[in-house]
Amino acid sequence: MESSDGRVYRRLARALRVGLSVSLVLLASGLVLGLAAGSPAAEGPAAHASGLVLAGVAVLLALPVVQAVLAAFTYWSQGDRGFGLAAFGLVVIQCLALLAARL
């Protein structure tokens, strides 16, 4: 039990640290570029700024899904099927949110 939990803790912490850093860099770069370019526009530096900010938000919102996938994979591969299924259920609900929001 300790072994699979140890791996889950380590993998989740690493994924969160990397993902948050990438997201914050993208958000900050996009903001600086957008503020320097002035009002948002469909082309030029402002378009790049929008792209960077959107990418930052997308990376941020993907982190919980990545966490749940990592937990599902780690627990399942360690033979801890119950928690693997619980984590997989969480992935399903997170993805379902994207579909349900479009209704």
């Binding site: 903001l31 900010v53 959107l54 919102l61 919980p64 997170q94 949110a97």
Partner: peptide, 22 residues
């Protein structure tokens, strides 16, 4: 793990300005 389920709904339905969020 869970706040994203609500956040995605607001984002997809146009209630989140990415610049304001950043």
């Amino acid at each position: 793990l869970t706040a994203v389920a609500g956040a995605v709904v607001y984002l997809v339905r146009g209630y989140v300005d990415p610049f304001v969020a950043a």
